[in-house]
Structures are given as C-alpha cells and as structure tokens.
C-alpha cells in the first residue's frame, strides 16, 4: 500500500519530452511576437524614408510653409517646436522635480499624500486631448495668452508633468537610506542632505525619465489642435506671446492635403521628428550610462 503513494522517477523521466516540447512552443510564440513587431516597424520606417528622404534638402529646412509643395519647408515648425520646448522643459522640470522632492522628502505619509499620489499617477494616463482643453480654458482664455507659444508650452508642460513627477519620485526613492543617514549623522540639515546627497544620486534617473517625457511633448498633436495652434505659418516667432506652429502640427497639415507631394513632405517631416526623438532618447541613455559608470 505504501508504494502507491510514492513518487516514481521512471514516470517523471517519461514526462521530460512533453515538458521540453512545451518549452519550445512557448519560445516560438514569444519569438513570433517580437518578429511581428519588428517587421511592422521596419515596413513603417521603410515607407516613411522612401517617401520622405528625397524631399530632405537644405531648402526644406530654409523654407516656410507654402501652397506649392516644391517651395514648402519646415522652418517655422522646427523653430516653433524649439520655442515651445524652451517653455515646456524648465516649467515641467522645476514643477516636477520640486513636487517629487516635496512628496518624497518632506511630506508626511498620510491619507492626503496618498490621495495626491494616486491622482498624479492617474493624471499620467489622462488623454492628451483633455490637457488641450485645460490649456484652452486656462492659458488661452482665462490668462488671455491666446494661441501662442506660452499657452501651448504651459499646456504641454502640464501634460508631461505627471510623468516627470513619477520618474523623479522613483529616482529619489532609489537613493539608499544609508547615505541619507550618513549625511544627517554628520549634522546636515534636510536641504543639505537633499542638495548634496539625494539629488546628485537621483539626477541620472530624473534626467532620463524627464527627457523621455519631454520627447512626448515634442510629438503630441492633439493638445496643440485644441489650443488652436495654426498649421500654416510663414513667419518666425520673436517672443513667447507670438503665434507659432510645431512639427506635429505641420505634419498633420501636410497629411490632410489631397496632393501626393504634400504626403511626401509629411514623410520628410516625420523623419525630422523621429531624428529629434532618437537624439533626445540617446541623450537620456548617455546620461544614464555616464553616471552609472561611477
């Protein structure tokens, strides 16, 4: 009777083939998923590059928007995006890192801070169109900025703010407690500890997360449409209260034209946008690697 309940090694060895089979099938499924994604991406890139590359010329960068595709360029959009980001980056970085430091280092853990935390995380998932409506109401109308750089910049800053906060919080939370103890143990104040120990340790993480968030602001179209950013701009802004257009707006405008030439121009614009995004992401990677080498 005793033997019936016992484990039989022959039986287990007999099952090995079946287990290995399963192993292979699962691996195949994951490989197929990866291959599918990669192929779609390659097709997309191929189409864009083959369409847009011939249009990439010095004139393309030098010219403003035009009714005639051979004269249309992306100058206003590139310069406009730079102006807008010069609002987005400082606004989102100061508010985001400040909030993260307060929540992680100063705020007492209470029901209120947990509630705030939950709302910040949820805001990160709110559709960008909603931020556009917020920007339209507050910055364009209430503050009376109109559809200008400053209004669009603040709107985009709000859009990426939750991501900057969450990324900064995670970076700050990753600072080893022992290091903070060492600083406090030497009689440092809270600010000295934050400034000399916490921030230097957390900056790579904060920078990486923030740059990824900023690159989202460069690519977003919906909030700009809602805020009323024009698509056809034939001048450069000279101040933050000027009108402007941005890369995704220009691309959106070109794709909605009936002529094929404009579609190709849109593809050329997308190449520029992708190049900017890749550049920004590379900077993020570079920062991370540089500081990790310590």
């Amino acid at each position: 009777m005793e033997n019936t309940a016992r484990v039989k090694s022959e039986e287990m060895v007999g099952r090995i083939d079946g287990r290995l089979m399963k192993n292979k099938v699962i691996k195949g499924i994951f490989l197929a998923a990866t291959a599918f994604t990669t192929i779609i991406l390659m097709v997309l890139l191929y189409r864009i590059i083959s369409q847009g590359a011939p249009y990439l010329s010095w004139d393309f960068f030098q010219n403003f928007a035009s009714r005639r595709p051979e004269q249309a360029g992306i100058k206003a959009a590139v310069i406009g995006t730079i102006w807008m980001m010069s609002v987005v980056i400082p606004t989102a970085a100061i508010l985001g890192v400040g909030t993260a430091i307060y929540l992680e280092e100063y705020a007492k853990k209470s029901a209120l801070t947990r509630w705030i935390q939950m709302n910040i995380s949820n805001l990160a998932g709110v559709p960008s169109v909603v931020f556009g409506l917020l920007g339209l109401t507050i910055f364009v109308r209430v503050f009376g900025f109109g559809n200008t750089i400053i209004a669009a910049g603040f709107t985009m800053a709000l859009l990426v703010l939750p991501v900057v906060i969450v990324a900064s919080q995670e970076a700050i939370r990753a600072v080893p407690n022992e290091l903070k103890e060492a600083s406090f143990g030497l009689g440092a104040t809270k600010w000295q500890t934050i400034y000399r120990v916490v921030l230097p340790y957390a900056i790579p993480g904060i920078a990486t997360g923030s740059i990824l968030a900023f690159s989202r602001a460069i690519g977003e179209t919906a909030p700009l449409i809602v805020v009323g950013i024009p698509t056809f701009v034939a001048f450069l802004p000279s101040g933050y209260l000027d009108q402007f257009t941005a890369l995704p707006m220009q691309i959106y405008n070109w794709t909605s034209r009936p002529q094929v030439e404009f579609h190709n121009l849109a593809a050329a614009g997308i190449i520029i946008l992708l190049a900017v995004l890749i550049l920004m992401n590379s900077v993020a990677v570079w920062i991370r690697n540089r500081f990790q080498a310590r």
Binding site: E181, A182, G185, G187, T189, R196, P200
Partner: peptide
C-alpha cells in the same frame, strides 16, 4: 558622531567623503 552597521561612504572620492562634514558646516 555615528558609525553605522554597514559602511556607508558617499559615492564620492575619499577626500570628498571627509570634506563633506566640513563643507556642510
């Protein structure tokens, strides 16, 4: 002063580790 269970030097140079206390004061 306090010495902790796990050695916890700052991720800085040896020199900066000791200068830290002076600098904050």
């Amino acid at each position: 002063g306090m010495v902790f269970q796990k050695p916890n030097p700052f991720p800085k140079s040896i020199y900066e580790n000791i200068a830290f206390g002076l600098k904050i004061h």
